[in-house]
Amino acid sequence: MLKDFTKGFVKENPVFVLALGLCPALGVTSKVVNALGMGAGVIFVLLGSNIFVSVLKNFIPEKVRIPAYIVIIASFVTIVEMVMEAFVPALFESLGVFVPLIVVNCVILGRAEAFANKNSVKSSILDALGMGIGFTFALLIIAFIREVLGSGTISLIPIGTWDGIVSIPGLSKSPARVFSLAAGALLVMGYLKALFNWAELKKAGAKK
């Protein structure tokens, strides 16, 4: 049971290992706070869709299951859109088109198809939380590297009068701007994936 929860962190990390949900992983990670917002949205949608798919698994006919899943997912995405627009309009604005695009995030449909329609509600909830946290964790790593190198800052959630931005002395004056642009995102992703592969290969080598 516990394995359903923890497998998403590293072993089956949706971004680095399964290579799902890549578009938002790169599109919203120029700032740490955007990665946090995106992660929260995905966790909510994933949780909702996994619960619904798992509850309804005996009622949805096999042939129309994918459209049915898409409707369930799209409903939760609409809720996220409305809540974000109402309560955190600045975040909603900077995530832009990527909020409605959660609907085509392969992680969510992938979990519905590969896990929730075969397992109990309880396992599906744990799976959703684990995968969601793994996804958020991956986004945060990418965003952290890109923001620190690309703008020399770390933007967190603003609290009270504090605007939530930590600037790193030295780096914030002359950052390597390319990391906050598209090219940097792809490069960071490539090297992080290579790091994961390297760790995997080393582990396999140690076993022999």
Binding site: A19, L181, A183, L187, G190, K193, N197
Partner: peptide, 22 residues
Amino acid sequence: PAPLRGTPIAFITGGLMALAFM
């Protein structure tokens, strides 16, 4: 190099292409 084979090198290639598209 072994760890870069497959998707990592594809991402890095894509990154360099994006650099050119700038």
